[in-house]
Design a protein around this nucleic acid. Structure first.
Length: 261
DNA sequence: ATGGTAGCCGCGCTA
């Protein structure tokens, strides 16, 4: 079972790339962020023609998440019950007995800003909800089947940052943000990427500006976290870096984790 | 060097 997450930065613009990529990679589940589409504009026909069911929660201009799956997603929940939020950043559904949570965690703009406070509060509520979801999705009991995937807007460690000195204490890298990430791991979730040997300087996002990608000035901020039993089944994890080379790319590359059946 | 690039129904804001 192949699970992917991709911040597409406008599904309208990236739809042709998404369809090509779905055909090439054949993921079973895809968590999309920054669709930037109202629900009535979601390209349901094109996604269905590609062989995927879709559930989504979008808004105009900003944010927006979607969950694509080759099997019908069940028990769809939009948003975090512990954090009422007009911003469309969270959608969850069950696919093949696995609870999938697709998240677009706030960027936070700058440490100390109002948006930063919102990000930390959002993460605190996410942590609370994930704790509950881990307990609520046992199969059988005490065997949580949970995936938390998406754009976290957090580089967990210095090795996830092209220039740790320049980014020290900055947004995406600050201690409170990294602490929130560690709290999610503390619930028993595993960073699928780090279950395997990986190339140095592996990143998932590069700023459009200043030739960020060409110079590999990136950060690894997109993640697929797995509950313990799923981590035990994980056979591979990686970043589809080549998608960032595409003409008119998203600023994020897709991340992928594979589970043995 | 406080820039730069991309996407948005936008004519600034967010990333």
């Amino acid at each position: 079972m192949k699970i992917a997450a991709w911040n597409v930065n406008s599904l309208k613009v990236r739809l042709p790339q998404l369809l090509e990529w779905l055909a090439a990679r054949r993921p079973d589940v895809v968590c999309l962020q920054e669709t930037k589409l109202e629900d009535h504009n979601f390209p349901r026909q094109e996604i269905a023609a590609a062989g995927y069911h879709a559930v989504f929660s979008g808004q105009k201009t900003y944010n927006g998440v979607a969950l694509l799956a080759r099997e019908t997603p069940a028990d769809v929940v939009v948003g975090n019950p512990y954090f009422p939020d007009p911003q469309k950043r969270l959608i969850a559904a069950t696919v093949r007995g696995i609870r999938i949570v697709c998240a677009y965690i706030p960027n936070g703009q700058a440490v100390g800003s109002e948006k930063y406070g919102y990000k930390l509060a959002w993460l605190d509520a996410l942590n609370r909800w994930m704790g509950e979801q881990l307990a609520a999705n046992p199969h059988p009991p005490d065997n949580p089947q949970l995936v938390l995937a998406g754009d976290f807007n957090i580089a967990p460690e210095d090795r996830d940052v092209h220039d740790p000195a320049a980014w020290a204490g900055q947004i995406l890298c600050s201690a409170p943000e990294r602490g929130a990430f560690q709290s999610l791991l503390g619930l028993g979730l595993k960073d699928s990427f780090r279950l395997f040997e990986q190339p140095e300087k592996s990143f998932s996002w590069w700023d459009y500006r200043m030739l960020g990608f060409q110079k590999n000035r990136g950060l690894r901020i997109d993640h697929i976290l797995l509950s313990g039993p799923l981590a035990a089944r994980c056979t591979a994890a990686g970043i589809d870096r080549d998608m960032r080379k595409h003409e008119r790319p998203s600023d994020h590359a897709p991340v992928i984790a594979e589970l043995a059946d």
